[in-house]
Structures are given as C-alpha cells and as structure tokens.
Amino acid sequence: MSYCVNCGVELRESESHCPLCDTKVVNPRKPYNENAERAYPRRYDVVLPAENRMMTALLATILTFLPALTCVIVDYVISEKATWSLYVAIAMGVLWSFVLPLVVVTKHRAVISLLIGTVSLSLGLFLIEKLVPVKGWFMPLALPIVVCAAFFILIIILAAKYVVFGVLKMMAFFFSFTALMVVVIEIVTDMYIDNSVQLQWSLAAFVPLVLVSLVLLIIERKKRVKDEMRKKFHI
C-alpha cells in the first residue's frame, strides 16, 4: 500500500498521483503498477449536447414571420391595402422553407432543404409574376433558371457528400460546375429575349472559372507546390 506524502491518505494501487493534491506517488518498495485494477476505466462516454430542434424551429419561424407580418400590417395601415409588403412576405416564406428543413430534419438535410426550397422559390416567383404588371416571364425564364441552378447545386452537394474529394479537387469541381451553370443561364436568357443563342457575358465568367479549376487541379497533383501553399496560407 502507498500513502500520499502530502495528505497522509492511503491510495488505491491504481493511482499514480494522489487525487487530492496531484502529488506523484513515490514508493520505492512498491512502484506504481499500471496494470492494477483501476476504479474507473480510462474510456470516456461521448456526451453531445442535445439540440433542441423544436425550439430552434419555433425561433426560426418567429424570426421569419414576424418581419413579414409587421410589413403587411404597416403597409395596410398606411395605404389601406397590401402592396409592397406582399413581396416581403413571399421572400420570408421562401427563406423559411429553406431554413426549416435544415433545423427539423435529421438526415439528408441539405438535399431536402434544397428540394423544398426550390419548389417554394418557384411558387414565390409565380406569385410575384401575378403581382407585377409585366407578365409572361415565369415559365420561359424564371422557372428554367431556378430548376437549372437547383440541379447544379444538387450535384455539388451530392459530390461533396458521397464522393471523397480533397479540398482542392472539390473546389475545382465547384468552379467548373459554376462555369457550366453560368453558360446554361445565358442560353436560357438568350432564348427568352430573341429565341437565338449568342454566348457573350457568360464567357467572361466561364473562362476564368475553368482556368481557376485547372490551376487547382494542377496544384492538387504537385505535392511540393501543395505543401508550399499549405505553409503560406495556413490559418
């Protein structure tokens, strides 16, 4: 048996230090035996703080609906009918439909949020078309752009989640897909304006984005350059 020279208490064989004063146990006749049965295992239980999802969802709902409701009331009080405030209400509704699945759903949050958000954004734009004097832009212009953007974002999310890429490869993938998306958006816009495709402004975005992707892919393959970059840009 060993005693703490500082506290005078006997110590369990498994204690390498006195738990009361942290003094190391020194007993030449009976050195500390690390194989002695410990009072508790060394392993720690993982304790994650529980998330209060419903509370967060309620908070998110209040934070989005309260400004919308305030705008509608103010608008109604001033002009005796809801005019501009309806756009705020639609925007907040769309925002809410993106945020809520992120809070409430436990699995595949990003994908579910994107799908629900896309539907709600399309619906929002459709309602706005009904409210503004200029008609006929929703089906040929707004809807294709929303669907196409959602499709590209979905592919990026799935790639990030299910394909194991390094950071640089992932960035290269993201930039090249964004380049493609920009081109598709110009095609849709051109078709809406004069029914013919002449790529102009999208090339200004496409070329640098593709170049950046290529540079990233090259850096990814050169270990020396990669190490140098890591050194220079470490946070």
């Binding site: 506290c7 005078g8 208490v9 204690e15 006195c18 009072a39």
Partner: peptide, 17 residues
C-alpha cells in the same frame, strides 16, 4: 479527508482522474 486522517481515522482514496 485529511481532517479525518488527523483525527486518527484512516482513509483510502481512489478517483476517476
């Protein structure tokens, strides 16, 4: 625990540290 030891009551200590 040291107060108990000073009163002549032996104590054996263990912990989860």
């Amino acid at each position: 625990f040291t107060s108990l030891v000073k009163m002549g009551i032996p104590v054996k200590i263990e912990s989860n540290k």
